[in-house]
């Protein structure tokens, strides 16, 4: 079964600019102590600080927090991109992540070529690639645009392609940044249906967002990130009222319609 275990994870980025020290003086107050010195006296930015949690099958986790709270960094660490210097991560299960709109897609290549490239990244067989190509073609409704260079696409079209592609791969763990919620109403409807089907098999979903509505619609667990710390975790019903500082039963009522 897919499973994610994180123990005392800290992720910090060294700053190598010559002016790092004066930077610390000025920016230090703004970042309220997120700049520190490591044992080699280098200035570091602590993006994620001492975070521990376990994610089990069936969990749909929403990472909630303001810009710069460490959501994307944590997501990248969970995707195995940032290997921890402190703490450890154990990820069991196949993984697909939608961290950037571009997804490593190349604007000069056609949509179809990008699909094939992505399949190569995942080391898929020719048969599997053909299946995925068909699946994405059907979902994205790009028709003849699929054979045009990606740079001619509107942002909505890129989104449909990227979303269709990431969800066609059928991972056990799906991670995404909130950008996919930016499509038009028709897209959201289709995406919702597709994602719901996926969640049944994917078992773990992790979404990073600062929109409470996304959490209310999609998640059954919330991690509230603040200043790199995991400030609070619980169900959306527990966390959202505290996060927003107001009663938000309307958020939960609306999504059932």
């Amino acid at each position: 079964m897919p499973h994610i275990q994180v123990d005392h994870l800290s992720i910090s980025f060294p700053l190598y600019h010559g002016s790092a020290r004066s930077l610390k003086k000025t920016a230090g107050r703004l970042l309220s102590g997120r700049l520190a010195e490591d044992r080699n006296h280098r200035i570091i930015v602590q993006a994620v600080r001492d975070v521990s949690f376990t994610i089990k099958p069936g969990d749909r986790v929403g990472l909630l927090g303001h810009n710069g709270a460490g959501k994307t960094t944590l997501l990248r660490a969970l995707a195995g991109i940032y290997e921890p210097i402190q703490g450890n991560i154990r990820i069991q299960g196949t993984l697909s992540s939608l961290l950037e709109t571009t997804l490593g897609m190349n604007g000069e290549l056609t949509g179809r070529e990008n699909i094939r490239l992505r399949c190569l990244f995942n080391g898929f067989s020719a048969k599997r690639t053909a299946e995925i190509e068909e699946n994405v073609q059907e979902f994205s409704e790009l028709d003849s645009y699929l054979d045009m260079p990606l740079r001619t696409y509107s942002s909505g079209m890129t989104l449909r392609l990227g979303f269709g592609l990431a969800t066609a791969i059928n991972p056990q763990i799906l991670m995404m940044d909130e950008w996919f919620m930016t499509g038009d109403a028709g897209f959201i409807l289709k995406a919702t249906a597709r994602l719901e089907k996926l969640i049944q098999t994917a078992q773990i979903l992790i979404i990073s967002t600062h929109l409470p509505s996304v959490i209310a619609t999609w998640c059954n667990r919330v991690f509230w990130m603040d200043q790199g710390y995991l400030k609070m975790q619980g169900t959306p019903q527990e966390i959202l009222p505290i996060y927003l500082g107001k009663d938000c039963s309307d958020l939960f009522a609306s999504d059932k319609t």
Partner: peptide
């Protein structure tokens, strides 16, 4: 895509820690 039970699928495991 595969109909096998999740427990029968060989799952990749990534373990990351300071080494």
């Amino acid at each position: 895509m595969s109909d096998a039970l999740p427990s029968q699928v060989k799952e990749p495991v990534i373990e990351l820690r300071p080494e």
